[in-house]
Nucleic acid binder design. Structure first.
Lengths: 232, 232
DNA sequence: TAAGTCTGTGACAGATTTACGCCAAAAGTG
DNA sequence: CACTTTTGGCGTAAATCTGTCACAGACTTA
C-alpha cells in the first residue's frame, strides 16, 4: 500500500484531496498542522508528501527541512501566492515541486504522478546492481524483462519472471512462501500462501519444456522452494 | 580531488548546489555566466559540468559546444520548462544529460553520480553522437527528423519519431511508460501515463503498413514496451 | 501401514492491462 | 484569424494474467 501524506489546515482542501488520492489507488494520510504532519510522516513512511506552506504549529518549509534530514521522499509544497519557483527551489529545503493555490485537484494528482515517475526506476539499471544472471542454460535479464533457455526466449509473465529472478539471485538459499510473497508481492500482500505454489507450477511448466541438468527449482518439503545448482 | 563546475546566474541555485556537491565529497567550482564558466573549465578541468542554458554573456549551448571542441567531459544541461527535446539531445551539442527546472538538488546529484558512473564504465560509445540508426528495413535519422522503411520515407510526427528513436537506441531493453515519458516528454510532464499507448498505436499503424520480419515493437504486459530484433 | 500434513495440478472467475476508435484541446501555418 | 496537424484523453472491448479452490498424490511420522 502506497501512502500519500496530505498536510493542510483547511479541511475543505484535505477532504477533496483525500478523495482524489483514494481514486488514484493510494491511501491518503491527513494532517491538519505541521507537527501532526511530521509525526504521521514517520509513522506511515508515505511515498509522497504534499505540504501546505502555511500551517499552524510548524510551517511547510520547516516540515520539509525536517523530513529531508531523514529521507529522500518526494515533497510537493503548496504555496498561496505566485512565488518564483527559483526562490522556492532555491531555499535549501529540498522540495521536489510546488503548486500555487488555487489549484485543481487533478493538477495536484498529475504532479504527484510526475514526482513518483521521476523517482521511480530509470536509475535502477544504472545503479550498479547486476541486471542479468546466467546459470547453466538459463539466463534472466531484468532490464529486458526477458528469460532465455539455450539463448531462446521463453515468454514469462511479470510475476513469473520476478519469481525466477528472486530465486536465482540466491542459489541454494531456501525461500519460504512468505519470503517470496514479501519480496515479490510486497509486505502488505493479503492472500493465500499457496498462491506461490501455483506460480512455481507455471514456471516449471514452461522451463521443463527444456532439459536443464545443471540446475533445478526444488521443493523443500514443509518449508518452501530453492534454486539449486547441480555440481556434476 | 574531483571538481564539479556549476554554472548558473542565479546565486540561490548555485549556493544550494554548492552545498550538495560538497556534501557528496566533490569540490564545487561556481560560475555566474557563460564566459566565466568556460574560463574556469579550462582552469580546473572538472570531472562534470552543470550548465544552466540561460546565462549572461554566453548561453549554455554555446559553452557546451566550446567545451566539446576540447574535451569529452560529461556535461549536464539545465533548462527551463518546455525546451524542445531535439535541441537538447540528438544534436551536435554533445550534452550527456539534461534536467528540467524545477528540480530538487538531490535529483541533480543523482544525475551527476549517474554520468560519472557511465563515464567510468566507458559506456560512452553507446550514445556517442549517433544521428542515424538502421535496423533491418527501418532507418531513423534524428538529425533530419526522418524515418524510412525500405528507403522510402514514412511521415512521422515529432513525438512518434522520438519514441521510435528512443526505443531503437536500446534494442531489447524494456521501457516502462514512465521511462518513455521521462526521456521524451520530459521531467515536468504532468499528463496521463496512457498517452504513451496512443503514440505506440499510431506508430504501429504507420509501420505495419510494411512488412518488417526482422524487428518489432513489442508490448511487455504489465511493464511497458520494447524494440525487439528477431534473430532468424 | 495408517493417519496427518503438505504439495502439485487443472479449472475457472475475476482482476488487470492493453488496443482501438473517437473526440477535443493544443500547437503550428499561412 | 481560419485551417491543418499534432497531441492528449477517455470509454469500451479484447487480451492476458492472477488468485483461489478442490482434489489427488506425495511425504512424514508414529
Amino acid at each position: 500500500m502506497q501512502y500519500i501524506l496530505v498536510a493542510d489546515d483547511n479541511p475543505d482542501i484535505t477532504d477533496v484531496l483525500e478523495n482524489y488520492v483514494k481514486k488514484e489507488g493510494y491511501e491518503p494520510i491527513i494532517a491538519g498542522d505541521g507537527e501532526e504532519a511530521l509525526n504521521k510522516f514517520f509513522e506511515y513512511k508515505p511515498s509522497v508528501v504534499l505540504l501546505d506552506v502555511m500551517m499552524p504549529k510548524m510551517d511547510g518549509y520547516e516540515v520539509c527541512r525536517r523530513i529531508r534530514e531523514k529521507s529522500d521522499v518526494p515533497v510537493i509544497l503548496v504555496t498561496a501566492r505566485g512565488e518564483d519557483f527559483e526562490r522556492i527551489m532555491g531555499l535549501d529545503i529540498g522540495a521536489d515541486d510546488y503548486i500555487v493555490k488555487p489549484f485543481s485537484p487533478s493538477e495536484v494528482m498529475a504532479r504527484v504522478r510526475a514526482v513518483l515517475r521521476r523517482m521511480s526506476k530509470n536509475d535502477r539499471a544504472d545503479e550498479g546492481g547486476r541486471t542479468r544472471i546466467t546459470i547453466g542454460n538459463l539466463t534472466v535479464d531484468i532490464k529486458e524483462y526477458a528469460l532465455y533457455m539455450n539463448n531462446e526466449q521463453v515468454s514469462m509473465t511479470k510475476k513469473e519472471l520476478e519469481t525466477v529472478w528472486t530465486l536465482m539471485n540466491n542459489p541454494e538459499k531456501l525461500f519460504t512462501r512468505d519470503n517470496l510473497l514479501n519480496s515479490i508481492w510486497g509486505y502488505d500482500y493479503y492472500g493465500e500462501t499457496r498462491t506461490v505454489d501455483t506460480h512455481i507450477k507455471r514456471i516449471r511448466g514452461k522451463l521443463d519444456a527444456y532439459d536443464h541438468p545443471d540446475w533445478d527449482i526444488k521443493t523443500v518439503w514443509g518449508a518452501g522452494y530453492k534454486f539449486v545448482i547441480n555440481k556434476s
